[in-house]
Each structure stands twice: as structure tokens, then as C-alpha cells.
């Protein structure tokens, strides 16, 4: 995940810790129906003197990711709720462009999973476009199964890895 920080170095370190905390939070439900986004992370009180970067704000206060069932790219109600918050956030931050990364779990073949990751990223992107976000503010990249966040080899890990993650474009 890209760290997006304007502050001096010690703030960047604090922000990194915050991001890790958000990333490591498992989806609410690890069942095949998918969970909700990173907004479920317990948002620790930010240091009063610092302002969150856009990426941190997206991760902590909006939810940067949605989850999918095995081999599926359908958006669950929780995923749509997260994307509703993302579209509202994009309207508030009108200059922001997002890259939507599509990912898969390890239980599949590499080439097919590249295509599946692209399909998942587009499912999230299309939902945002339908909510009124300009298409040229949203790019997609598939990482297939090459960039897992959860390193286990079990359903709990796979559920976290079947995801579309929104990243502030640089």
C-alpha cells in the first residue's frame, strides 16, 4: 500500500502504524458472502496536531476495500455500502483520482486470476461511475493473485485477499 503523507518524518511513521492497523483488520464476515470495507477498523484517535493524508482518510474513515466470494465479482450489500461512502468521499474531494486494484486468493491459476482481478476492479469502478463519479477519475489495475494481504492458507486469509482496493492515484 502506498503511503501518502505530507507531514514530517515522525508523522509519517505514525501514519504507517495507523495504516497497518487498518489493513490487518479482518473483514467483518470472512464467509464467502464477503465482508465490508476497512471502515470497520477501530479508528484510534488521531494525534490532535496532525492531519490525515487523503489515503489515510480513505482507509480509516471511508473504507478502501470491498470483498468478493470465491470466483465471483458480484458486489455484496456491504461492498455497495463501502462504495457509497467512497463515492461520497470522491465528491467531497473533487480533485482526487483513484486506482482500483483487483485481487484474488491463491486458489486459482495465474492467468485466469489476472482476468478475474480485472473483473472485480471493474465491478467496483462501475459502481462508483454509476454513483456519478467521472470515469476518468477511476483507473483499474489487476494484480491477480500476486499481491495477497493475508498470508495464511485458509478460508479466512482467502476471504481477505479476494478484494478490490481503492488507492489514491499519485
Amino acid at each position: 500500500m502506498r503511503l501518502y503523507s505530507f507531514g514530517p518524518k515522525f508523522i509519517a511513521v505514525a501514519a504507517a502504524a495507523l495504516l497497518v492497523a487498518a489493513c490487518e483488520t479482518a473483514p467483518e464476515s470472512t464467509a464467502a458472502t464477503g465482508g465490508s470495507g476497512g471502515a470497520t477498523a477501530p479508528a484510534p484517535a488521531a494525534p490532535a496536531q496532525r492531519q490525515l493524508s487523503l489515503q489515510e482518510d480513505l482507509v480509516v474513515n471511508v473504507g478502501d476495500r470491498v470483498f468478493f466470494a470465491t470466483n465471483k465479482s458480484d458486489l455484496s450489500p456491504q461492498a455497495r455500502a463501502t462504495l457509497d461512502r467512497q463515492s461520497a468521499w470522491m465528491k467531497k474531494n473533487a480533485q482526487v483520482r483513484l486506482v482500483v486494484e483487483g485481487h484474488c486468493d491463491e486458489r486459482g491459476t495465474r492467468e485466469y486470476n489476472l482476468a478475474l482481478g480485472e473483473r472485480r476492479a471493474n465491478a467496483a469502478r462501475n459502481y462508483l461511475v454509476n454513483q456519478g463519479i467521472a470515469a476518468n477519475r477511476l483507473q483499474t489495475i489487476s494484480y491477480g493473485k500476486e499481491r495477497p494481504v493475508a498470508l495464511g492458507h485458509n478460508e479466512a486469509a482467502w476471504a481477505q485477499n479476494r478484494r478490490a482496493v481503492s488507492v489514491v492515484a499519485n
Binding site: 482476468a115 480485472e118 462501475n126
Partner: peptide, 9 residues
């Protein structure tokens, strides 16, 4: 090769 566009390859 495959070319992916709009979720279709």
C-alpha cells in the same frame, strides 16, 4: 494473448 477491457477479457 488476452486483452482485458471493462471486466471482459
Amino acid at each position: 494473448m488476452s486483452y482485458a477491457k471493462e471486466g471482459i477479457s
